[in-house]
Amino acid sequence: MKRGRIAYAGAIHQVTATGDKVRLPNGTLLNEDEVVWLPPVEPGTIFALGLNYADHAAEIASALPTEPMVFLKSTNTLLGHNAFTIRPDDASMMHYECELAVVIGRTARNVSQADAYDYIGGYTVANDYAIRNYLEGFYRPNFKIKSRDGCTPIGPWVVDAADVADPMQLELRTLVNGEVTQQGNTRDMLFKVPYLIEYFSSFMTLNVGDVVLTGTPHGTINVMPGDEVVTEIESIGRLRNTIIRDELAPTS
């Protein structure tokens, strides 16, 4: 089952999706393009992995991490499917990051790798944008690069864990204006999903609805206002976002 959250006719609804239709709890069927997609999750905590694919690590850093390079993101970052993300005028390198997002389904503390899948509720797609020239050296990645308003589209929906045969064998790709610019497979993660659940839950409690963004493969390129960025993951979904200028930026 694909479970989403939408705004429609003045209210927020939990919906299920089939094909290009969206089903409201009362049975009404809508076309997917006539609703406003909201982030399908409302996490308390958003974990994110840096440098979790060897080929992307080589692209932006010199050495591979020996333990998960994890950071936290604030919830003001989340946007739904079909939304808009701002590229500030002084950004020199703003890139997308197509990532498998894992949604926690049960409270997890001290969970072993062997049991980890029992604690996953589902999966969705995230696009964890970065503005690389904002990267600074303290508690990094700092908020200005990774916790900006609306810098993390997520969705369109959460696919139930039971419906994903092997989350460690999924093709990921990003298309900018219809052209494939990033490709990878979740099998190439350095630290796999069960390992990450064990790792986090060894020192903190994972709560229902928490999200783990599992990192991105090679192929992150600069995007500009007007670009349509589609991040998609096999068996999960296709998440669309459009880059816009900062129309309200103070002019100097």
């Binding site: 308390g44 604030s74 700092n142």
Partner: peptide
């Protein structure tokens, strides 16, 4: 430079 204290 900000950091988060998470709900847990």
């Amino acid at each position: 430079v900000m950091y988060l204290k998470t709900p847990n």
